[in-house]
Each structure stands twice: as structure tokens, then as C-alpha cells.
Nucleic acid binder design. Structure first.
Lengths: 151, 151
DNA sequence: CGAGAATGGTTGACATACTCAACCATCTGG
DNA sequence: CCAGATGGTTGAGTATGTCAACCATTCTCG
């Protein structure tokens, strides 16, 4: 059909580049799909999306305030989420010894187990990731890092 | 053999490919950053993340049920969100003529204006996207499409 | 046709997420 | 030592989210 619109391009068939709008749509779809998957995985452990997020962030203990910044939400919100996680025995508050205002949140054994399950299920559910070869994984990682720079 | 999809790098230093875990982390960071940005843009219009999401989905009128599927949430949830959007005059319910059970949600003029602002601000805020060249945009779009296939 | 099942949407009850203002405890800098 | 900054909690209020129960309409099939 599209015989007329051709213009000189490399011998390999290069599809037309996506418009910025299409790219933005792609990002939106990807982000939505990621969180849909994450929410499902968290739900398997009886957790909400946010509870799963917090557990995932706790690779190392960190103050409530830091969690609030990472989640981009109010500190009082973190209080509530942490309350519920603590009530389930997945998390613990430990008063910081150098600054007694600070409460460090850390995973309990049970919390470690749960987050390990979540991570495993998160990976095994995204089978498409495993279908990328090394170059593609490197490229995707690099491009995402450039579009969404660290911090 | 896919020479055009590679971007230039010195032959000697091929950075190590990211581990699956690192890649998953990259996806998590990107998704979080995307929604943080989206939420900020929506907030500029006095809207929540979900309200902004719904407006963005309404490129064309669609039944409540379809919205619920796209948002991956319960239909009764969509009722609430639509109620609030309708109360602000951004959206309207129209009974479908072929199936009178169905209510199609559509943007009002005001809703169109608002979503246009959101889209514009969403783009102009992500300046990093504009810094990718054509090949990189094509590659990113392609890889995202493969990791998160359309429906 | 007509009775029952299926579907789209709303309502009500309830848990969670989220923000804001007010507040206490602790720390920090003159 | 005191005034202000900082970390966290509480309380009020709204939004989001699920579930069960419920109409209205449509579909299925005897």
C-alpha cells in the first residue's frame, strides 16, 4: 500500500520512528502494565500496591522520612502504611541511636521472606524480559536511565 | 547484524549487561518516575492521578466497563471517579442507544481543554525524551512494546 | 414468546491511601 | 540555654479501592 511514501533509508527495513506522542503513550502503557503486574503479585501476598512498594524499597533500613521522599508522599501517609505493615509483622520501627527523633524502618524475617517471594514472582511473571538478548537488555536499561535519570 | 539499532560505542569498552534484577529495578524506577511526573501535572489542574488517567484514556467515548478494564479496577470504583469528574464538568455520561444498559463516558469541551493541557505539560516536562535521536526513540518504543505487549 | 441467566451500572459498607494542619520530641546553631 | 528546624504522629477530611447486593436491560434457548 505505502509505495509512494518511501524515501531513502538504510538497506535494512527501518520502521518509521514513533512520534513523541506515540512514545509517551508507550511509556504510559508500560508503566501501567508494570504496576498492574506488581499489584497482582503483591495481592498474592495479601498486600496492597503501596505496601508491596514499601517492602521492596527496604533493601536496607531507612527513616520514615526517606521513605516518604522515595514514595513522593506526605510523611503522615508513611506512618499509616508502616502501621499496617508492622501490624502484620513484616516490618519493625527502630529508634535511631544517633538521632532519637528518627525511626528506622526495617524488614522482619517474615518481611524478608515476603519480599523475596514478591521479587521472584515479579521476575517470573515478566517472561518477556527474558526474551531480550544481552544487547537489548543493556540498551533498554540505558535508555530508561537516560529518560528517567536517577534522583 | 542489526547495525542500525546499535548506537555508537568504543569497541573496547562494552559495558556489562544489566542483570535481570537490575533491569527490573530500572523498570520500577522508570514507572515510578513516570507516575510521579504524571501526578504532578494532573495536580496542576486540580486533579488526582486517577482522574487524570481517566481523562487521558477518553480519546474517544467509552463505556464505564471498558474504563474499569483499562484501569484494572472494580466497576464501582469507576462510578465514583466518573461522578467526581462529572461534578467538575469535565466528563459526561451518555446512554448508549444500541444497548441502554451501557453508559458511554465522554469528555466535555472543558474536559478536552484540560486533557490537552495535561498532555502538553506531560511532554514538555519530560525534556529527556527530546534528547533521544530517531533511532533511540524507535528502539525504546520497540523494546517497551516487546516487554509489555499490547493487551 | 417467555423465564432465567448474563451483563452494565449503581449503591452501601468498609479498608486503605493521601493531604493538610496541629502537635510533641529531639536536635542544632547561635 | 533558647529559638528554630527537623522527624514523626495524630486527627479531620477526601479519594481510591474492594466486595456484596441490587436494578435495569439484554441475551439465550427451550
Amino acid at each position: 500500500m505505502s509505495t509512494i511514501l518511501d524515501y531513502p533509508r538504510p538497506m535494512t527495513t527501518a520502521p518509521p520512528p514513533p512520534t513523541p506522542v506515540q512514545l509517551m503513550d508507550g511509556l504510559a502503557r508500560a508503566a501501567a502494565a508494570y504496576y498492574r503486574h506488581f499489584a497482582e503479585v503483591a495481592a498474592e501476598q495479601g498486600l496492597t500496591l503501596m505496601q508491596g512498594k514499601v517492602l521492596s524499597l527496604l533493601r536496607r533500613p531507612m527513616p520514615m522520612r526517606t521513605l516518604a521522599e522515595l514514595l513522593a508522599c506526605d510523611a503522615s501517609n508513611v506512618t499509616g502504611i508502616t502501621d499496617r505493615l508492622e501490624a502484620r509483622g513484616l516490618v519493625r520501627r527502630a529508634v535511631d541511636q544517633t538521632d532519637r527523633r528518627v525511626k528506622n524502618v526495617l524488614l522482619t524475617e517474615e518481611g524478608e521472606r515476603t519480599v523475596a517471594l514478591i521479587r521472584a514472582e515479579l521476575m517470573s511473571g515478566l517472561t518477556t524480559l527474558g526474551q531480550l538478548d544481552e544487547d537489548e537488555r543493556r540498551t533498554l536499561h540505558d535508555l530508561l536511565g537516560r529518560v528517567f535519570p536517577q534522583a
